[in-house]
Design a protein around this nucleic acid. Sequence first.
DNA 1: CAACGATCCGTAATTATATGA
DNA 2: ATCATATAATTACGGATCGTT
Lengths: 210, 210
Amino acid sequence: MTVIRDATDGSLALISRLYPGLYNRPPPQHPRETKPRRRRKRKAGNHGGITGMKKRKLSQEQVNLLEQKFGDEHKLESERKGQLAAELGLDPRQVAVWFQNRRARYKSKKLEEEYSRLKSTHETVVAEKSRLENEVIKLKERLAEAEKESRRALGLLDGLGSSNSPSSSVTVNGAMGQLATSWWTRDYVYEDVLFPETGCIMINGMDWGF
Amino acid sequence: MTVIRDATDGSLALISRLYPGLYNRPPPQHPRETKPRRRRKRKAGNHGGITGMKKRKLSQEQVNLLEQKFGDEHKLESERKGQLAAELGLDPRQVAVWFQNRRARYKSKKLEEEYSRLKSTHETVVAEKSRLENEVIKLKERLAEAEKESRRALGLLDGLGSSNSPSSSVTVNGAMGQLATSWWTRDYVYEDVLFPETGCIMINGMDWGF
DNA sequence: CAACGATCCGTAATTATATGA
DNA sequence: ATCATATAATTACGGATCGTT
């Protein structure tokens, strides 16, 4: 099944000599193991030393337990580290390294997830923004039209008011006054609400000079 | 059985000219047809001993050249790989590994950058959305008011029309008809444009039944 | 031709090392 | 010493191509 490659079995040959039984995939046995590596001495570069240790893959069982512990706590206390190492038949150093790498993996994985999440909500917001922009446009159209119609009605009222009975004129003028203070001459205006062509309103061929 | 790797003592620059390397390096990408790959040649092998030691940390000079090449192309053709390896005094395998790891680094770095960028634009869009929401609210207020005023004016017109001379009535009724067809009874209406309290408009103590 | 196997190449994940805070 | 981080090397898996059958 597993194709043994030149490079791989070279490693295997070497490793299996040092760590018998560790590379078995199907039956991962418990490696009770002597560790040929010694602790890293002071930063004396041990380049060229025997330190070049080939990586041995941890068995699935070992990984399972490590993952479980990682789920409990992302950090390790040296106390638990030693215990875990003994339980797994690993060098405490390996356990520590495993946790470090696991934290790094966790971090980048988390970043990916965060990115996906952010991207998703971003697209949602963009769509909502687009919807709002359309709504604003429609509202402005409606508003421009409504105001235009108001002016038209007011113009008609004004025209009527100048040739009506006094009582009616009072009513009309009163209404005009209210309208004027309510929105007609208000000081805050959306410049872009009124369409250009509404700047000069022609009703029945008459320019109302607005 | 054949051990090939390692022995990267840095003095085996000669072994690299075994890769006759071949033509072609199209941006292959996804599975699509003829991608004349590298011709394969008999493996030559095995540099040096079994020494599983890792010659870690490439020199700054080596990294500089590698980075430069990476800048040109993120992928390596075996031809260039062999040449580069010879130039650097490295095992071609190491060059390949370096590029693989470099691509991985590039990928995660890019993800980080993309995340920052996305986050930034997201916040911008959120702000714009908020602004648009406010604008919509204001426009709705204005629109409700404008329509209310229109109705008030129309109400006044109507009131005048019912107690005026026939000639005036004609004018008034004509205006009403225009208004009615322009927006007053249009069939598409923003349900949320009119505020709840405007559902029943009282003008001068008169319910217009809207 | 098709099928197969060996060999190369790449990605993704993993293990380990080196260094600085 | 521990941790975070960068880097190197290894492992496993998959795809592509060549050389045979």
